[in-house]
Every structure is written in structure tokens, then in C-alpha cells.
Amino acid sequence: MSGQNSFGNRGNRDASVVNTRGMGTIDGTRRSGPVGEGRAGDPFLIGEGMTGGYGKGADILHDCTISVEKGQIAVIVGPNGAGKSTAMKAIFGMLNLRQGSVRLNGRDITALNPQDRVKAGMGFVPQVNNIFPSMTVEENLEMGAFIRNDDIRQTMQQVYDLFPAVAEKRKQAAGELSGGQRQQVAVGRALMTQPQVLMLDEPTAGVSPIVMDELFDRIIAIARGGLPVLMVEQNAQQAMNIADKAYVLVQGANAHTGTGKELMANDEVRRTFLGG
């Protein structure tokens, strides 16, 4: 979508000249703007009134607001193509916001690029391609802690304690692990920055139900430890069960907002998204 393909698909099949594996979609050359003041009474993290889309394309989000408080879990649910992941990416600075702002911990970070948002305390786990496949588990975690200059061993031990299954495989290439273990590595990598807020884009996509339950348990544990968690979920039912706050998006706009329990009780939400 982004990027200028002047030659169409020409030449991109020839492995002796081009390497399309691991290619990025985010413009890493963009520079950050200034950090502004937050507003009084803000939640810990809030993306407020966000309107925008990818590059110069049409708007995908329309006046969308998402927030999360300290120690809470907020989930974003909604039908396919509702802009759930896009809202997440907007908060992380990966698309052009035409209106709205993103504020974290009393600061306005709307003008920051994604790299600097990481430094500002945000941790993000993308839905796919969320590990470094040819690097070992340990190296994946080290890369998570790239911006830190202090001793990371303690944090690494915490991650291993949280995910004992991957601790055993710390010297193995992450790409060789099973789907569930990869997700654990991915979450672990994001935790290594010691973020102030953790954002997960469909962490349970493509993993078996047992693994999914286990992952949810871990996520709850993380949130109860004081780290606010914002996540997009496809499995609306389970997600709402654990959510302190839930957002239902439809066509890039807020349709319903409330605690998980409130929304579960809401007839319309149940009919349209929870299948009765």
C-alpha cells in the first residue's frame, strides 16, 4: 500500500538481486516533533479524537478515542476491518493523524515517531512478524532492551519467570519455536524495555485454545503487576471477560465503550459481536 512501486511487481522475484524478507512498512527516517504538555485529568494513556489513515490514503479512523488507566486492561474489539489494529498503530505513531492527539503519562506525544515513543515508555507487540526469527530467544530479549543502558539481567529473569517454556529455549533461534512460544517471546521482548504501557495487537491470533488461555493468564498477571495493557482482540468474549475497559469499534469510530461486564450485558453488542 505504502511505497512507490514504479516498476510494479517487476524484478521482485529474483532472489539474486532483491531480498524482500523482513522488509519494513514504517518510515524510519521520519523525525520526531516536540513533546507537549498533557491535560489535567487525563488517563494514563489516551489517543483522543484520532482521525487519519495510512500515508495519503483515505481516513480509516474517524474521531476515535481509546484510553487505558494504570493497572488496567483495556481491549479493543469489533468486526473485521473495523480499524482495531489501525487504532493501535495510530496510538503508536505509525500512521498520519490528521486530527486528534496521543498523550501518555501527562505528556502530549502526538508528534513523536515510533522509535521515540518506545523511549517514551510504550511497548508494542505487533500481530505478525513480532520476533527476530534468526536470532536466539535471548538475543530477541536483548534487542527488546536495546534502548536501556543499565543491567538487563533482572528484567530478563522476570520474563523467563513469567514464561518458563521459552526460558528453556533461550539459546534457540526464535524462528524455530512453536506459535504460542513465539508469542511469548514477542511479549517478553516488549517487556524488556520496561515499558509504562504494553500494547498487544491480537496476541492470541493463530494459537490453540489452551495456549490462548495461558497467554490471557499471563497478560492478567502483567496488568495486575501494575503495567497497563491495551490490546486488540479477535476473541471478543474472552477479551471482555478480562477487560477493565472495552471499546467496540465499527468502521473506524467508537461504537460502544464501557467495562467488559457492561458491554457483555449490552444487548446490541451481544447480538452483533458476541454471536447471541
Binding site: 523482513g22 522509535q115 508494542f124 512478524n129 536470532m135 536495546f146 516488549a190
Partner: peptide, 17 residues
């Protein structure tokens, strides 16, 4: 190596591309 493996994730880890 991380950038080579996964450009976007490297960026999300705070690596300056």
C-alpha cells in the same frame, strides 16, 4: 542483525534504522 531479520520490529524496539 535484528534490522535484517525484521525492520519494523527493530524500529519498535527503539533501534534507529
Amino acid at each position: 542483525r535484528a534490522y535484517s531479520d525484521n525492520e519494523d520490529l527493530a524500529l519498535l524496539s527503539g533501534i534507529d534504522p
